[in-house]
Design a protein around this nucleic acid. Structure first.
Lengths: 388, 388
DNA sequence: ACTGTGTGGTAAACTGTTTTAACAGTGTCG
DNA sequence: CGACACTGTTAAAACAGTTTACCACACAGT
């Protein structure tokens, strides 16, 4: 019984007889046998008795399964003629290769995990949303699927993030919004899995990263304010332990140091990346020194919080204090004055991150470390310094 | 060669027997070759020569692969003793069952697709975010993964949504935010795949659904306004072809009909579910009839838009006009006055949707059609009707 | 002693691909 | 004319699990 493998109690679905010639497009597969004509089952006809698999296709096309597989994967080893013949059968049978089977025998899963911090509203956040949009779009284009994971404490403790690799669920990870050093990151680093930190970097561990050029963004913001005559410039930062936040602080400090006003510790406040935090920080800054004329904010949310806090004190923006944000996210409309801000190309960043991750996964890149440029968007929350 | 299958060029890493009772967890790798002593390879020891699979575990534990499989799946057929023995070996070898293999041979994929409309900022939207949070959390708890898909025109045209089923990638779909009748929905319906419409329903097709009780919500909102003395109540609706939106309209119409003021077509405007649309609708309503004293809005975004539009006309909320929204999403803070709104339990709805989908997938439910209750959150945007 | 009923476990079949080594056939060059 | 390369195709191994039919054995009932 050498044909045991090729037949497999499954020949029945296809070889059925029909007397009418069903001529159309269906390529004359009619093996006229005695009285019964066996022919191709053009898809809907009481449905294929069972899911059609690669062997059915091979049998029907009169080639081996290897050939069919190669046709599916556009392997150039297959001749144009065979390719066409097989493709036609695939069409007729409505064959769809099983993903689990492909993944099992193949090297890659074509799935990328996106890891978000366990913030309650992470998925409703404009910042993450923008990154995610870019990620989802590009992943779709590259024929990859994305799965969303939230790094809850229990999740990490159970090593679920490692599981995803070890159980061959994903090819790689994209980590979004991790500012604090998580032992999880060390896990990834030491195992050398394809993992990219998105919009941050980690020098402690050997982890790949890609982020917006916060240094450049900070320069742009500071240039703007300084050109407008501001000297007493405060800053509302957040997550000071994160590398990109430090980039901003470094630039801020250096630029302030170069000004006559110098660096002043009371002009710095932590706003926790939230609107409420930004408001509180603005209050603190203002009460410490009512002579500040501008505030640079680490993100737009804090900037908006600051604007509201100032408004509550009767301080006008931009007449009394200029505000510059970071992100350029799609806020609710009707914010007045509209916010001058450093545009971070988050959509593109997400897209690029996917691309790099896929390249890394396929060993086309040894290491990823990349910075993408920003630009300033001048709107209404900044103006020439007040003269008092 | 009967053992061909069980040995498989892989016996070297593990199959070894042990005389010492494997006391220490540490990798006592002493291969005492008297008669051949070997010991457990506790994980880190130059790494397992190759990925450890179920046969390795079976060999090491001295049981069959079937037994190991059953242990993994907590099959009660296995005795406590065997269970423990196998579990210990699994631990020692650091064995993790391969998901693709499990999926291939098993019935389910444990993956759920979440289908979003192709709106540019769908992923940054508070409404979807809240649903997604609930979905992600509950899916995690039920050991399911979620993949995010956006229903771009090309996506649907290519039948990628069907592919996900036919190629055994997912067990089911959760459809979020589809108001218009998409031919995609018909595809799902006729193929009888497990698909649940979340926060909407479709009577045309036989599709499962679960949504918030918009009817109840509308009653609550109308009760509130009517109790406050309002009679000239306008409505800003959206997506009038969608069933839940019609629910709201129905209730609105009926309640208005019961009032002395009656139903008035000029008191209705489409706000497209966006803030801008809400603003435009409010403008339209106000210019058509400046005597309206309250506006019921189909979602919070439109309500906020309406509030801004009214403010621009110098109309005070709630002194001149009361506003009630729908959703109770986490808006940016600092909205003043805070919005009275119908709270939709979106997080819970998402969680419930996952649960139902999993039940349906496993044929524990024949059909899903469910409504979850809402409640009114009274804040500052409503007040007793003005007396003029 | 014989039959019936569980229990705990196993061998083998089954899921559906990719990949590799081998091979047959054809054309090219020395 | 044989060595050689190249092309297109295939058989079989590999991927790593789950499930099913069956079996050995213990125990209870007649």
């Amino acid at each position: 019984m050498p044909e045991k493998f090729n037949v497999r109690r499954r020949e029945y679905p296809i070889t059925i007889k029909m007397d009418n010639d069903q001529a159309d497009a269906a390529p004359a597969d009619s093996v006229n046998a005695g009285s019964e004509t066996v022919c191709t089952v053009s898809y809907p006809l009481g449905k294929p008795p069972d899911k059609v698999n690669i062997r059915d296709v091979a049998g029907q096309a009169g080639v081996s399964v290897a050939t069919v597989s190669m046709v599916i994967n556009n392997n150039p080893r297959i001749s144009r003629t065979t390719q066409g013949k097989v493709q036609r059968v695939i069409q007729q049978l409505g064959y769809r290769p099983s993903r689990p089977a492909q993944t099992l025998s193949g090297k890659y899963t074509q799935v990328i995990a996106v890891l978000l911090p366990a913030l309650r509203h992470a998925l409703a956040d404009a910042y993450f949303g923008e990154l995610l949009s870019g990620i989802a779009d590009r992943a779709g284009k590259l024929n990859h699927k994305i799965i969303i994971e939230q790094a809850k404490p229990q999740y990490v403790k159970d090593n679920r993030h490692i599981d995803l690799f070890e159980r061959k669920f994903v090819d790689g990870f994209l980590c979004l919004g991790f500012n604090d050093k998580h032992h999880m990151l060390a896990d990834f680093a030491e195992r050398q899995y394809p993992v990219i930190m998105v919009d941050n970097r980690y020098t402690e561990h050997k982890l790949d990263w890609i982020h917006c050029d916060y240094r450049q963004g900070a320069e742009q913001a500071m240039n703007c304010l300084i050109q407008l005559g501001h000297r007493r410039i405060a800053i509302i930062y957040a997550a000071p332990e994160s590398a990109t936040a430090r980039d901003v602080m470094d630039v801020y400090r250096r630029r302030m140091h170069d000004l006559e006003s110098g660096v002043n510790e009371t002009w710095m406040a932590d706003g926790m990346f939230t609107a409420e935090g930004g408001a509180a920080a603005a209050d603190k800054l203002w009460s410490a020194d009512p002579n500040i004329t501008a505030i640079l904010c680490g993100n737009d949310k804090m900037a908006i919080g600051a604007m509201h806090a100032l408004a509550a004190h009767g301080i006008r923006v931009p007449q009394d204090v200029s505000i510059v944000g970071f992100d350029d996210i799609q806020h609710l409309p009707f914010i007045s004055p509209s916010l001058t801000t450093v545009h971070l190309p988050l959509y593109e960043l997400g897209a690029l991150a996917v691309e790099r991750l896929v390249e890394r996964t396929h060993n086309k890149l040894p290491r990823v470390g990349e910075v993408v440029p920003t630009h300033l968007v001048l709107r209404e929350s900044t103006s020439i310094v007040r003269t008092h």
